[in-house]
Simulated assay, not measured.
Amino acid sequence: MSTQAELTGVAGWAVDVMERLGGPGAGLIIAAENLFPPLPSEVILPLAGFTASQGTFTVPGAIAWTTAGSVVGALLLYTLGAVFGRTRFRAVWSRLPLVDLDDLDRTEAWFGRHGAKAIFFGRMIPIFRSLISIPAGIERMPLPLFVALTTAGSLIWNTLFVVAGYQLGESWHVVEDYAGIFQRVVIVVVVLGAAWFVVSRLRRLRRDRSA
């Protein structure tokens, strides 16, 4: 590959793995990305498209293998949640500061109503893409439903980034730039939401103590 020498860090490593192992290498990296979020799919997927443009494998092959990797990684996290279990999770939750079991009950009720949508759309949201599999396992969402929703959501997300990387070729990093903006927006929203929760909960605790 003419630009391989210019790629360093995660990008250089990912391209090397995909060139050595082909499509299965892309799937392996995406499976690892589910378990280790510092490996960002917003970089790996466009690189899979870029590698496909160099003839290492085909675009359909890249999409199929990366989607398979997404499902495998999600299943590992689902299993982790299922093994940890609802009872242990509630015991840990009860020891956390600023929250109580009523909060967890409301969260579980919300997941019961909207869990399918959360799994499907969560596969297209940075940060949540990996984490959403754990509560699905804790709540024991039916496995066929979980696999179907994960496959559908991952297929859309992976296709978008792989095709973009293929079309852009050596300019694949443009996709990463735009995806980075989206990721930063998600992080800001999460931080603001967490800050609002902490402040409102501290105020409530002060009111309760005053009463």
Results as ranks from 00 to 15, higher is better:
139 E>K: 05
143 L>Y: 04
52 A>C: 04
86 R>A: 13
103 D>T: 07
126 P>D: 02
186 V>Y: 08
205 L>T: 03
79 T>L: 15
137 G>C: 08
28 L>W: 03
140 R>Y: 11
175 V>T: 09
23 G>H: 02
190 V>G: 11
99 V>A: 08
10 V>S: 09
149 L>A: 02
167 Q>D: 13
168 L>N: 09
123 R>Q: 12
9 G>V: 08
210 S>H: 14
206 R>L: 05
157 W>G: 00
102 D>H: 12
145 L>I: 14
118 A>C: 10
180 G>M: 07
58 T>I: 09
6 E>G: 15
33 E>N: 06
94 S>R: 14
56 T>M: 06
211 A>M: 14
150 T>N: 12
67 T>S: 05
24 P>M: 02
123 R>D: 00
129 R>S: 06
164 A>K: 01
165 G>F: 00
50 F>D: 00
87 T>S: 15
25 G>M: 00
148 A>M: 13
112 G>W: 05
62 A>C: 07
114 H>I: 13
136 A>G: 12
146 F>W: 03
11 A>M: 06
99 V>G: 08
142 P>Q: 08
101 L>E: 12
93 W>A: 14
17 V>C: 09
211 A>Q: 15
194 A>Y: 06
124 M>P: 05
103 D>E: 09
5 A>F: 10
147 V>W: 05
14 A>Q: 04
137 G>L: 03
5 A>W: 07
88 R>G: 12
84 F>T: 09
189 V>P: 02
127 I>H: 08
30 I>G: 02
169 G>A: 11
30 I>W: 00
167 Q>W: 12
127 I>C: 08
50 F>S: 00
69 G>N: 07
72 V>S: 06
167 Q>M: 13
97 P>C: 01
120 F>I: 06
205 L>K: 10
33 E>H: 04
86 R>F: 13
46 P>H: 01
42 E>Q: 14
133 S>H: 07
20 R>Q: 13
148 A>N: 11
95 R>Q: 12
30 I>F: 04
135 P>Y: 03
26 A>S: 11
154 S>Q: 06
13 W>G: 11
37 P>Q: 07
74 A>V: 03
186 V>A: 01
67 T>W: 00
78 Y>K: 01
103 D>I: 06
66 T>H: 02
169 G>E: 10
210 S>W: 11
69 G>T: 08
209 R>N: 07
18 M>C: 07
157 W>I: 07
82 A>R: 13
89 F>R: 02
48 A>I: 02
2 S>T: 14
2 S>C: 10
138 I>F: 01
169 G>M: 08
143 L>E: 04
30 I>V: 15
8 T>M: 11
